[in-house]
Amino acid sequence: MYPKNTWYVACTPDEIAGKPLGRQICGEKIVFFRGPDQQVAAVEDFCPHRGAPLSLGRVEDGQLVCGYHGLAMGCDGKTAAMPGQRVRGFPCNKTYAAVERHGFIWVWPGDQALADATSIPHLHWAESDEWAYGGGLYHIACDYRLMIDNLMDLTHETYVHASSIGQKEIDEAAPTTAVEGDHVVTARHMENIMAPPFWRMALRGNGLADDVPVDRWQICRFSPPSHVLIEVGVAHAGKGGYHADARDKASSIVVDFITPESDTSIWYFWGMARNFNPGDTALTATIREGQGKIFSEDLEMLERQQQNLLAYPQRNLLKLNIDAGGVQSRRILERLVAAELGKEQQP
C-alpha cells in the first residue's frame, strides 16, 4: 500500500553514469538512462522483441540498446532501430516522468498526466555552498511504513544504536507530536546531558569541547509519500539548545528518502547534511562512514520485524505514546492511497 501519484527518489546520478540502471519502483520495473542531451529518461524495463530487460543492455548516442538482439529504443519509449528489421509497427514502451534535482533522480510511477515537477520538495541544503552532504543507499526487505515508524520514533536509538547515538536520556525525554496538514512533526529535547560518541565526534569537528554537558534535540519531519528529514544536534548546555548560535553547537539534517520497491522491500536513500565546516571533506567522509554504520544497524531489526509480521498477520500490535509520529504518518498515507483508489474506480 503506497501512493503512486507522487515523486520518489529513484537513484543518484552516479548510478546512471554511462550505463542504464534497472530498478523496480512501487512495483513498476523501470530502466533509467541519459538521452542524447544527457537528460534523464525512464522507460519500462522490457524489450518489446523478446521481453529481455533493457537495463542489461547499453546506452549508445542517447538510445537504449538491448543486450539480447540489439533493439534500440529512444527516450520516448519508441523503438528506433533493430538490425535487419523494420520497426515502424513495434509497440511503444511506457515512459515515466523523471527529473534530476538536488543531487537525486526523481520518478513519478503513477498517472503520468498528473506529474508536476514543481511538486518535487525543495531541499535548501542541496543548493547551498554553506552545507555539505554525504549519503548512501541500502536495499532493505521490509514494508516502507516500517522504516517510517522507525524514523518517527527515535526511542529505539537507546537500544539499536547504543554504541553511537543512543543514550538512556532519550527514553526519559517524552516526545511531542503535531500534525500540520499532510506533514507530521515529532520532537524531543534533552537538556544538560553528556553527548554520545557520534555527537562528541561532531562537536570536535566544529572545534568544540566534547567533554562538557550539552543540550540535544531531535525533530523528525514526515512528508508524503515517504520522506523523513530529521533536524538533530547538540549545543553546549545553557547556550540556547536548538536555537544556540552556530559557534556553540553541532547540528545537521538527517536525510531519509524511502522508496518502495514492493510491498515488502524498499530502496533507502540515507545521508546527513550539515552546515558547519562544509568545506572539510575529511569530516564529511567521517560523518558519512559513521551514519552508514548507524543506519546499517537498523537493517536486521527491520527485516526480522517484517518476517514476524508476515508470519503472524493476525497479531494486533500495541500503539504507545512514543508511536504517535508513525501512527499519524500512516493515517496520512492511508488517506492518500484511498483518494487514489477512489479516483481510479470512477467510471
Rank of each mutant, 00 (worst) to 15 (best):
V234N: 01
R315Q: 14
A178E: 15
Q306N: 07
I165T: 12
D111A: 10
K78D: 08
L203D: 05
A81T: 08
A324V: 07
K4A: 03
Y133V: 08
E100H: 11
G110T: 03
T176M: 07
V9H: 01
D76M: 03
L71K: 04
V228Y: 10
A235S: 14
F276D: 00
M272D: 04
T177D: 11
G135V: 14
R216W: 06
A237K: 02
F104D: 00
Q307E: 14
Q218K: 00
F104H: 09
H124K: 12
L302K: 05
H49F: 04
F90Q: 12
A141S: 13
G77T: 00
P109Q: 02
N277Y: 07
D76H: 03
L54W: 06
I253H: 10
V337K: 11
D323T: 03
Q218A: 12
I219A: 00
N277G: 08
A162S: 11
L336T: 06
E15I: 02
V99R: 03
H124S: 14
L333T: 15
N150A: 15
N93P: 05
D61Q: 14
A173F: 04
I148P: 07
F46N: 08
G279A: 10
E231T: 13
V254M: 12
N316Y: 10
S262M: 02
Y68M: 06
V43N: 04
W106E: 02
A115D: 00
R86T: 15
I165N: 05
D263Y: 09
H227L: 15
L299F: 10
G134S: 11
V99L: 05
P48Q: 05
V212Q: 06
F198T: 11
R34M: 07
F90G: 03
A209P: 00
I287K: 01
V99T: 04
Y2D: 11
G74H: 10
D215A: 05
T158K: 12
V87W: 06
L54T: 03
V255T: 12
L146R: 15
R34F: 05
A237E: 01
R50T: 02
A235N: 07
L283D: 05
G292K: 11
K343P: 04
A10E: 03
E15D: 04
Y138T: 09
D215P: 05
Y242M: 12
W217E: 08
A80Y: 04
R58H: 11
T284M: 13
R58Q: 13
V160T: 14
S226H: 13
V232A: 13
M194G: 02
A311D: 14
G84M: 12
K239Y: 04
A97E: 09
L56A: 12
Q38V: 01
F33K: 07
G22M: 06
Y133C: 10
L341Y: 08
P175L: 09
E191N: 10
H236V: 14
S55M: 03
M301W: 09
L309M: 15
R23V: 14
D45R: 03
T177V: 10
D245G: 04
R221F: 10
T186R: 08
D143V: 09
E100K: 02
E28V: 05
F90S: 13
S119I: 07
W125D: 13
V87K: 05
G238I: 05
L317V: 11
K343N: 15
D14F: 08
H227P: 00
F276P: 02
W125F: 15
K4Y: 02
S55K: 03
R247F: 00
T186V: 08
